[in-house]
Write a protein that binds this DNA or RNA. Structure first.
Lengths: 248, 248
DNA sequence: CGTGCGCTTGAGATACTTCAATGCTAGTGG
DNA sequence: CCACTAGCATTGAAGTATCTCAAGCGCACG
């Protein structure tokens, strides 16, 4: 499936990894990696722990999650990904997947051949630089998460997750004022914050009562961002820094 | 202070970041970055949150920790570093430090000028590749930590930290059989695992009683690695994989 | 010979979990 | 069009892992 000019345009515009490439080079990379556009429904596996790594995905629409699954069923979500995000152990030398990646909503994504993608990154310095930047950005995000899980209370963790997602949506222009689509179940929030779904529910109820945030029918509304920031122990400046963060 | 041939040799041999450079190129890089060798005592700050980034450190001897400090004093240790490790936001574009880095034991380290180090990484592809590899390795380690803090009990977290450090020491050849130098206080373990020092103490006492591990006079002894692995929910294969991990 | 830091232990508090039940909504098959 | 089911949110009640506060002890250091 040959990428059209429009599709190449969309990739350059919305995918940080490709943001600084000339359409020319990108088109060449897409050809080299046998890029194809596919669609998946909800709850589909994109990759599983232990599987061989054969390709790299770039999300165009919808949400996926990457998670770790322990023997007894405990689950830790490491990352939510949406349009513009890259999933897969791109850049590492790992030959097998370490984690599970699964769709949450229906997803439209590009699939690139992993091996030729690595080769392209080696040949194209700009792509290599972007890849490195992506790694450091992810590292910083994951370190924030370590502090959250290690040292912050349930309300703080949840408030911060909500704000991180809000910043992400703002950056992508996908939030209308103080509202954004929120396709996650309470169990997703639980597994991302290291809590139980029941406790997430109680905390969310308290957020609702204190007029900070409410979630109805898959839409999250920030009723009062000052209250939310207080719960998250963040200043407005911190929040603005969050928006600037992300894969630039 | 001009690096001697012996010093260059030591850097190539023990610092993953430089492991694949020719002595020639390394010497050139060290000159470009005004590399100097310094020594610090215990509990010295190497950098503080908010400070401007001016240099990059490479530890030759001793231990440092990098941590996040919340307004109310809660502390989360993100990483312990020792010989061969690089500390500092090398590779990112951040102009200011995000975390605190402090020595635990006396430390001998090289200091490289940050700006010219970045420049060197841009010019020397092999260095750039190593930097990227380092970032992905760190990312993977930090993701393990997220799962530990989010989903594992106190004994599991502590057992896994001990095993991760043991693997690190084995890799560096710094462990004698089942013993290694352990300069950390129980409060360090607490802040690395998201627990309190009191609870770490109780858990460590139980490890001692169950003949898994004991710590005496700054030396950690793995009495029975099978028991320890059980506590950590790890197999011997997992542990061996840990040893192979790390910045190759 | 005090003083401080780290380790140890006890007792009580609490944030979060577990188990269990109820209700709501959307989808499915008859 | 209704009965049935499944998934998710909500709430109550009881349990527990971990925390907090507090005290004592040993050792190193000045």
């Amino acid at each position: 499936m040959m990428p059209s000019a429009d599709e190449v345009q969309e990739l350059v515009a919305h995918v940080p990894l490709f943001g600084s490439l000339r359409s020319e080079s990108l088109k060449h990379i897409l050809e080299q990696t046998s890029a194809r556009l596919v669609e998946d429904g909800s709850r589909q596996f994109i990759s599983r722990h232990g599987q061989e790594v054969t390709d790299v995905s770039i999300i165009m629409d919808g949400w996926v999650m990457r998670y770790d699954l322990l023997a007894d069923g405990r689950r830790q979500i490491l990352e939510f990904g949406t349009s513009g995000d890259t999933v897969g152990p791109f850049g590492t030398t790992a030959t097998h997947h370490q984690y599970f990646v699964q769709t949450i909503t229906p997803v439209r994504r590009w699939i690139l051949d992993a091996e030729s993608f690595s080769a392209a990154a080696r040949k194209e310095p700009e792509l290599h630089r972007r890849l490195t930047l992506l790694a450091f950005t992810a590292l910083s995000e994951r370190e924030d998460m370590v502090t959250d899980l290690g040292r912050r209370s349930a309300p703080e963790r949840i408030a911060r997750l909500i704000l991180r997602l809000l910043a992400r949506m703002d950056r992508a222009g996908s939030s209308k004022g103080n509202q954004y689509d929120f396709p996650f179940k309470q169990s997703h929030i639980a597994d991302a914050t290291g809590l139980t779904a029941v406790h997430v529910n109680r905390t969310l109820m308290s957020f609702r009562k204190s007029n900070a945030v409410r979630i109805d029918n898959g839409v999250l509304t920030v009723v009062n961002i000052d209250v939310l920031l207080l719960l998250a122990e963040m200043t407005m400046a911190d929040f603005n820094a969050l928006k600037r963060k992300g894969p630039a």
